[in-house]
Amino acid sequence: MSILTLSGNGRPHKRPLWLYYDAIWGYVFIVPFLLVAAVFLIFPIAYSFYLSFRETWLYSNWFDQFADMRYVGFRNYVDLLRNPQFWWALVATFVYALLVIPTSIAASLALALFLNTRLPGYRALRSAFFLPHVFDVFVVGIIWLLLYNPQIGPFAEFFRWLGVEWFKKHGFVDNPYTILPSIAFAMVLKGMGFGMILFLTALNNIPDSIFEAAEIDGANARQKLFYVTIPLLRPMILFMSVTGLVGVLNAFAEFYAMTKATGGVAFQFLGATVQAARVSGFYLYQLFSDAFYGHAAAMSFILLLIGLVITWVNFRILGKEA
């Protein structure tokens, strides 16, 4: 049918007829996906940008706040940049990223190296280490809240048995000093099996002949690890760093669960009171749930820029490799 309409309009065809036919069917097949993507992914980016220059106000129509926002220019961005809470959100995110990403990569790599041999039961072990990755983050966070409980949890008791009373008194997620490392520890344990699978795949792609050549040149196990294996795994390590950073910018449920929706204990930062574990994703949620939609949109846009910078750096580095 489409052929008839196309050839009936009298235009000369330089390309074979079936190519037009093919193109039309190409559009037909992408339409459902593109429609959803346009409405829920592409439009939101533009709309976020628009919203970031507006804000709800005292007399906004309570039933349709989004339709009744005032233009405020760059006020939202300026507000954020002058707010210590915003800077603490970025610092906390950065600290959390430093705690969680290198540890995850090292732990995943070590696991992959242990399980890259024909150790009896290696298949079952790989699956067992991977399993927690598929569990609900929020629910796992609630379980960790019990494990970290200073009165009734096993970890505080374990440290007391070791002779460290500090956690019994101050808890793990109940003080500003250990809250981020404690959440990071829980998340590294949950995610290391996922990284392990990625590293196992990458290890599998390294030809055996490279190790044989190193062996013939007299390299010992440690030299092989540091001068052969790790350099060859560099693209995977970079990939995991970048996806890890984007993951940290997105982190929310684990913080919501392990701080009982508060963002953690309060402490002083740059002369303001901030919540110790209020990372960028949590801060964005808080702006949103307090109905500061304009500020939340501006925060989204700042996160978008950070995400794009990370991606750009990634492409630069990975591009150089290839």
Partner: peptide, 11 residues
Amino acid sequence: LVPGIIFMVPQ
């Protein structure tokens, strides 16, 4: 490649 949380408000 952008963090998905930024779609929260407009969605």
